[in-house]
Computed example of a mutant assay.
Amino acid sequence: MSSETCAVCGGQFPFDSTVHLLVHTNSEEGAFDYYVCRSCYEEELAPLVA
């Protein structure tokens, strides 16, 4: 099974226990495409979009 590196904490996690984070910016930078572990998502990112 493949693993992904969490963009927040840097840990290695199985693909099926990560959240795919795709943020489209309104700038020349375009889109940010990351994977984050569920723990970091729930603690750090979910409150931002709630």
Results as ranks from 00 to 15, higher is better:
3 S>K: 14
3 S>I: 13
4 E>L: 07
4 E>C: 10
4 E>S: 08
5 T>W: 00
6 C>M: 04
7 A>Y: 08
8 V>H: 11
8 V>I: 15
8 V>S: 11
9 C>T: 05
9 C>R: 09
9 C>E: 02
10 G>A: 05
10 G>H: 06
12 Q>F: 05
13 F>R: 07
13 F>I: 09
13 F>C: 00
14 P>N: 04
14 P>I: 07
14 P>L: 06
14 P>A: 09
15 F>A: 15
15 F>K: 14
16 D>K: 10
17 S>K: 15
18 T>E: 00
18 T>W: 03
18 T>P: 04
20 H>D: 09
21 L>F: 08
23 V>P: 01
23 V>Q: 10
24 H>D: 13
24 H>T: 09
24 H>Q: 12
24 H>S: 11
25 T>E: 09
26 N>Y: 12
26 N>P: 02
27 S>W: 02
29 E>T: 10
29 E>D: 13
29 E>P: 00
30 G>E: 03
30 G>A: 04
31 A>H: 13
31 A>L: 07
31 A>G: 04
31 A>D: 10
32 F>D: 01
33 D>G: 02
34 Y>T: 02
35 Y>V: 01
36 V>H: 02
37 C>Y: 03
37 C>V: 07
39 S>F: 07
40 C>K: 07
40 C>N: 05
41 Y>E: 02
41 Y>N: 08
42 E>W: 00
44 E>A: 08
44 E>G: 00
46 A>F: 05
46 A>S: 15
46 A>I: 00
46 A>C: 00
46 A>D: 11
47 P>Y: 00
48 L>W: 02
48 L>M: 12
48 L>H: 07
49 V>A: 12
50 A>M: 07
